[in-house]
Amino acid sequence: MNKWQGRMKQWVVKQFNLPEDVLFELPRITTIGQLHAYIENHKGLVTFTEKEILLKMKKGYVRLRGENFVLKTMLQEEIIVEGKIREVQYLDE
């Protein structure tokens, strides 16, 4: 059932030329230099320290490493991180 739904969605995305992140709820990460990172479609905050942020995604996790992290905004749909971003890492489950 789930598999079939996934295939259906993929077909819709292909046919209608829709951005994938909308339908698949994939993380969309925008960074502005090393200063800011906008992370959309997250599923929750796992770890938050000055040096590391671990965010839960629909599938897997995203880890940000850097310095002086401050969460500028925390909303259900997006998180804005400020600080000095060193790396963005995707982790599988």
Binding site: F48, E50, F69, L71, K72, T73, M74, L75
Partner: peptide
Amino acid sequence: IPIWDIRR
């Protein structure tokens, strides 16, 4: 609940 400027 929107919260912001979160610092550890």
